[in-house]
Nucleic acid binder design. Structure first.
Length: 559
RNA sequence: AGGGGUAUAGCCAAACGGUAAGGCAACGGCCUCUGACGCCGUCAUCUCUUGGUUCGAAUCCAGGUACCCCUGCCA
C-alpha cells in the first residue's frame, strides 16, 4: 500500500459491518467476492469503484475476488472488451490469480437447471412475441395476465426447449420463462424470461449455443457455482434480488451467496452512461475512448492519472446506499496528492516570451543544479542551463500589474527559480503594441536565496528556460469536459453543457533540456503549473507531446 | 399510482439507546527560492419533517415530505 492510500481514511461501511458479522458468527469461514463486468464496452471510473470495493474487501478480510465476465449476450460482447477489462483491472493493481471466470463457462449447467425447472413445472416455453409479452406483463399498478402457453405440458416444454437449443427456431420466436406470479407487485417476478434464442457467435464459447440465459438466470447461479459469499452490485439490481433468491431456492445449487447493493458512483462535470460516452466518441467530440478527458479508465490512464490515485479516491469516497454525487475535485485532489509525492520537478514555459539579460555576457553559459523534489533530496538533482536569452511565461509578466501581483513588471525584480534575481528594465514592442521581448539585468551575487544585495526579500519566484538550450514541445491542457456540474440532469441534452475549452493545445512550449529524456511512465511536475506526462500515443521521437494531468492548486488566481 | 430503496454540514461519510468521527471544500494564520507542498486553528447545540416512547433518541414507534430504481427476448 502506498503512502497516499495510507493517508486515506479507512472508514467503516455497511459492507464491512456485514462481513465482520458473517465472519464472527461463523456463517462464512472466509469471503469470496467478484467483479462481474459484461464485456460490452470500456470500463470507466464508476467501475473502478466497484473493482476497489470487491477486490479491496477480499484483500482486507483475507478472502479472494474473482474476475468474472458476465457474458450472456453475444449480440453485444466482444473479445476486445474482455482484453481491455483485464488490462484495466491489472492496471488498477488488482490480481484475480487463478480466478478468471466466465458466466459462459457454466452454460451447460445452467441449461440443465433450466430443464430441471421445466420438469418441476416451474418453467415453460413461450410462443408469444416480445410485444405480446410486454402487453401481458401488465403495468406498475396493474397485474399481468397469464400467457396461454403457460400451461403447456412438461413433455412439450422439454421438447421445445431442446429444439431451441438445437437451433431449430429463429431469433425472437420463442423464449423460456419461469412460472412465478403474473400478479406479483415486483414486475421482475412476473414470469421472467430465462432464455432467448440468439444465433450469434459468442466471444468465449464460439457457436456452441443458439440460446443464451438472461442475466437473472445466470448471475446468482454463477455466484453459487463460484462459491461467492458476498455478491456486491449496484442499487438498480435491488428489485432483482427476490428473483436472485427464487432461483437459489428452487434449484439444487451448491452454495448460498447473498446479494448486497451499493450506490453507484456519480461524478460532477462528466457523464458516465455507456450510451453517452459512446456518443461522444462517435460524434468526434472526443478523439476516442482513450481521450484524456474521458472518464474511462483508458482515458484516465492516458491522461496520466495513477492507479494509486484512483484507488485512494475510491477509498476516500466511501460506500453507501444513498444516491450521491462526488465532486470531481476530489479525484483531482487525489491525483495531486499522489503526484506531489512522486513526481520529479522540471521547468517548462508554456506560453513563451523572451527575456534578454543585457548585463549577462553573450555566448556565456552556466549550469545550475536543481533539486528534483524540494522535500525529497533522495530524488536527486539535475543540471539546468542559464544563458543570456531566456524564455519566461507570458503569464508571469504584467506591464500594468494588478493588485497583489508579485511576478515580473517593468522596473520590478523577481527570482528566477534556482537562478538569479533579475530586474526588468524594459519592454520591446512591435508597431501594434504587442510585446516582442523583455529586457533585464541580473544580480551576479543572487544565486542563493531570495534576498537582494541590500537585504530585501524578493516576493516573486518564476520559472524559466534557457532559450538556446530549450527543447520545443506540444503541450495539451485538459480541463473538464463539461462546464456544468451535472450535464446529465434531466431533460436537456447533455451536449449543450460541453466545455468549449476542455482542451487547449499549445504547440510552441519551451522545456528545459533534461526533459528531452522524459519517459512515458514518469509524471513530472512542471513547477508552478501542474503535473504533466508524455502522451503515449502521439509522442514521436524528437517531437514530444505532453498532457497536463491536473493543475497545481492555485489560491492566487482564485481570488 | 403498485413494489423496492434513500434522507446526517457546500460534497462524501461514521454512529447500532449514552449525549454528532473522519475526509474533501471553505475560511483565518504560520512556513516557503513552486502564490505548490507542509503546519496550526475555525467550520452540525444538531441528523428531511411532525408527533410519540424513554432518565436519555440520528438511532425505537406512528404519520407526513422529497428524491432514486423497477413495466428489455440488456446487464
Amino acid at each position: 500500500m502506498t503512502s497516499i492510500e495510507q493517508a486515506a481514511p479507512v472508514t467503516n461501511n455497511f459492507l464491512r459491518t456485514i462481513i465482520d458479522e458473517d465472519l464472527k458468527s461463523g456463517k462464512h469461514a472466509g469471503i469470496v467476492t467478484r467483479f462481474p463486468p459484461e464485456p460490452n464496452g470500456y470500463l470507466h471510473i464508476g467501475h473502478a469503484k466497484s473493482i476497489c470495493i470487491n477486490f479491496g474487501l477480499a484483500r482486507d478480510f483475507g478472502g479472494r475476488c474473482h474476475l468474472r465476465f458476465d457474458d450472456t449476450n453475444p449480440a453485444k460482447e466482444e473479445q476486445e472488451y474482455i482484453d481491455s477489462i483485464k488490462e484495466n483491472v491489472r492496471w488498477l493493481g488488482f490480481d484475480w490469480g487463478e480466478h478468471l471466470h466466465y458466466a459462459s463457462d457454466n452454460f451447460e449447467q445452467l441449461y440443465c437447471w433450466a430443464v430441471y425447472l421445466i420438469k418441476q413445472g416451474k418453467a415453460y416455453v413461450e410462443d408469444l412475441n416480445a410485444e405480446q409479452i410486454r402487453a401481458y406483463r401488465g403495468t406498475l399498478t396493474e397485474a399481468g395476465t397469464e400467457s396461454p402457453y403457460r400451461t403447456r405440458s412438461v413433455e412439450e416444454n422439454l421438447d421445445l426447449f431442446g429444439r431451441m437449443r438445437a437451433g431449430e427456431f429463429p431469433d425472437g420466436s420463442r423464449v423460456l420463462r419461469a412460472k412465478i406470479d403474473m400478479a406479483a407487485p415486483n414486475i421482475n417476478l412476473r414470469d421472467p424470461v430465462l432464455y432467448r434464442i440468439i444465433h450469434a457467435p459468442h466471444p468465449h464459447v464460439g457457436d456452441a449455443w443458439k440460446i443464451y440465459p438472461m442475466y437473472d438466470f445466470a448471475h446468482g447461479q454463477t455466484d453459487a457455482i463460484e462459491e461467492i459469499t458476498h455478491s456486491i452490485c449496484t442499487l438498480e439490481f435491488e428489485s432483482h434480488k427476490p428473483l436472485y433468491e427464487w432461483f437459489l431456492d428452487n434449484l439444487p445449487v451448491p452454495a448460498r451467496p447473498r446479494q448486497y447493493e451499493f450506490a453507484r458512483l456519480n461524478l460532477t462535470y462528466t457523464v458516465m452512461s455507456k450510451r453517452k460516452l459512446q456518443e461522444l466518441v462517435q460524434l468526434g467530440i472526443v478523439s476516442g475512448w482513450d481521450d484524456p478527458r474521458m472518464p474511462t479508465l483508458v482515458g484516465i490512464r492516458r491522461r496520466g492519472y495513477t492507479p494509486d490515485a484512483v484507488r485512494a479516491f475510491c477509498e476516500m469516497i466511501g460506500v453507501g446506499r444513498s444516491d450521491s454525487w462526488i465532486d470531481v475535485a476530489i479525484l483531482e485532489e487525489c491525483v495531486r496528492a499522489d503526484l506531489n509525492d512522486s513526481a520529479p520537478r522540471a521547468m517548462a514555459v508554456l506560453r513563451p516570451i523572451k527575456l534578454v539579460i543585457d548585463n549577462y555576457p553573450a555566448g556565456q553559459t552556466e549550469e545550475f543544479q536543481a533539486s528534483n523534489h524540494p522535500q525529497k533530496p533522495e530524488m536527486g538533482s539535475r543540471s539546468i542551463n542559464f544563458s543570456r536569452e531566456l524564455w519566461i511565461d507570458s503569464d508571469d509578466f504584467m506591464e500594468v500589474p494588478s493588485k497583489g501581483f508579485h511576478r515580473l513588471t517593468v522596473g520590478g525584480e523577481v527570482k528566477l527559480r534556482c537562478g538569479y534575481i533579475i530586474t526588468c528594465t524594459g519592454v520591446v514592442k512591435d508597431s501594434e503594441g504587442a510585446i516582442l521581448e523583455l529586457h533585464g539585468d541580473y544580480d551576479p551575487a543572487s544565486r542563493e536565496g531570495i534576498h537582494t544585495a541590500d537585504g530585501r526579500k524578493v516576493k516573486g519566484v518564476i520559472h524559466w528556460v534557457s532559450a538556446v538550450h530549450a527543447i520545443t514541445a506540444e503541450v495539451r491542457l485538459f480541463d473538464r469536459l463539461f462546464s456544468d456540474p451535472n450535464p446529465d440532469r434531466g431533460g436537456a441534452d447533455y451536449k449543450q453543457f460541453l466545455n468549449p475549452n476542455s482542451v487547449e493545445t499549445l504547440s510552441d512550449c519551451k522545456l528545459e533540456a533534461s526533459l528531452a529524456g522524459a519517459e512515458t511512465e514518469t509524471r513530472y511536475q512542471f513547477e508552478r503549473q501542474g503535473y504533466f506526462r508524455l502522451d503515449p500515443k502521439d509522442t514521436r521521437p524528437g517531437t514530444p507531446v505532453f498532457n497536463r494531468i491536473v493543475t497545481l492548486r492555485d489560491v492566487w488566481t482564485k481570488k
